[in-house]
Amino acid sequence: MAIPHTPTFVPQPADTPASEIALRVLVEFAGGETHVIGTAVIIAGHLAVTAGHVLDDITTRFGSGQSEGSKQVVSDYAIRLYQITPGPEYVVWNVFTAWRCPDSDLALLHLGLHGSSDPTKPIAWRTTPVHFTTPSVGTPIAAFGYHSSVPRTTPNADGGYHLDLDDKPTTSTGVVEEILPAGQPSGNFTFPCFRVAARFDGGMSGGPVFDEAGMLRGIISGTLSAGDEIDPPISYVCMLWPLLRLRIDVNRGDAHPRDVKYPLIHLVRDGLIHSQPSSFEGIHPSLISSWMSTEVEPSKS
């Protein structure tokens, strides 16, 4: 896909194809109290990535349940991801477990089906290929997320509630302007990231950032300046490579040990996350080798 080199900020229809892989992140309480928090992107079956500060916002505002290292098990409320698939059909996912990625603004979410508008329709996962290294300076990028969200709930006769969500799906484009392997020395972006001339509004945090090949290259973190007619926007995107070393305990099927912890790179090795050999270029081979060879260990959860 061709991406403009000049910054653009373009509204999209509610059922844009991007809404199949880029999902709205909400917090819901029993009775209908609802909060829209940000955006997330599916990277594999039952797994999505969002910005770490989206998860931090949830646990700070609403509390967190049991925790173990980088893993947090939410309780007292539900974190739900809302997806629109072709039809359109509406699919709602519960977040069962969330892992906060150390030294980065990334979080991994483990999903389970909550409900859909057509329960007879089988789930068909659509994911985007992931490139774990950073695009070079001058590379055009396209980001996607939801902003200006207004949720409305109305009670149902059965004691439940109906949710209406008014928001603005938006594609933002620009170019990579600076690579920051260790982030800024101070401020809010002190983790591996890259600076882009693209506008990101509140609520877009956690959304996907793509290159012209359609590969996922980063996650929206935030904006210092939305820009104007004279000055371009100043925004930051999380690098993806820290996810590779994140230790998780998602069961992978009968061909793998159950209830064990392992680094996420094993999902790439096993083909459960779609990538290419070139996706590791720029990461020291010894790191890749050490993460790949890490043995599984029993999960304590």
Results as ranks from 00 to 15, higher is better:
residue 141 I to R: 04
residue 278 S to L: 09
residue 246 L to T: 06
residue 171 T to P: 02
residue 162 H to P: 00
residue 2 A to W: 13
residue 191 F to H: 11
residue 5 H to E: 14
residue 293 S to N: 14
residue 142 A to Y: 04
residue 149 S to H: 03
residue 246 L to V: 11
residue 235 S to V: 05
residue 77 Y to R: 06
residue 131 H to V: 14
residue 74 V to N: 05
residue 197 A to T: 04
residue 137 V to G: 09
residue 134 T to G: 02
residue 124 A to K: 10
residue 242 P to W: 00
residue 210 F to D: 01
residue 266 H to Q: 06
residue 192 P to C: 12
residue 88 P to S: 03
residue 215 M to Q: 15
residue 295 E to V: 05
residue 108 L to W: 02
residue 226 A to W: 12
residue 261 K to Q: 10
residue 281 E to A: 13
residue 82 Y to S: 09
residue 212 E to N: 04
residue 297 E to L: 03
residue 122 P to K: 07
residue 12 Q to C: 12
residue 218 G to C: 03
residue 98 A to V: 04
residue 29 F to N: 06
residue 63 G to A: 02
residue 53 H to S: 08
residue 300 K to L: 05
residue 130 V to W: 10
residue 281 E to L: 13
residue 65 G to I: 08
residue 45 G to T: 09
residue 116 S to E: 12
residue 41 V to T: 15
residue 191 F to M: 04
residue 252 R to K: 11
residue 212 E to G: 11
residue 54 V to I: 10
residue 203 G to A: 01
residue 164 D to G: 12
residue 239 M to D: 15
residue 8 T to H: 14
residue 274 H to N: 10
residue 219 I to L: 01
residue 102 P to L: 08
residue 31 G to Q: 04
residue 99 W to F: 15
residue 44 A to W: 06
residue 105 D to T: 04
residue 291 W to L: 03
residue 133 T to Q: 11
residue 162 H to D: 13
residue 11 P to A: 02
residue 50 T to W: 02
residue 276 Q to L: 02
residue 232 P to C: 08
residue 285 P to R: 05
residue 14 A to C: 11
residue 3 I to G: 12
residue 226 A to M: 12
residue 61 R to A: 13
residue 121 K to C: 08
residue 244 L to S: 00
residue 187 G to C: 02
residue 28 E to P: 05
residue 8 T to A: 13
residue 103 D to E: 15
residue 68 E to Q: 08
residue 201 D to H: 08
residue 263 P to M: 02
residue 160 G to E: 11
residue 128 T to G: 03
residue 210 F to Y: 14
residue 247 R to P: 01
residue 70 S to Q: 10
residue 249 D to K: 00
residue 168 K to D: 11
residue 15 D to S: 13
residue 88 P to L: 04
residue 73 V to L: 13
residue 147 H to D: 09
residue 86 P to M: 13
residue 75 S to T: 15
residue 27 V to G: 06
residue 244 L to C: 05
residue 159 G to L: 10
residue 89 E to V: 09
residue 223 T to A: 10
residue 28 E to D: 06
residue 259 D to V: 00
residue 109 L to A: 12
residue 299 S to P: 01
residue 56 D to W: 09
residue 280 F to K: 07
residue 3 I to V: 06
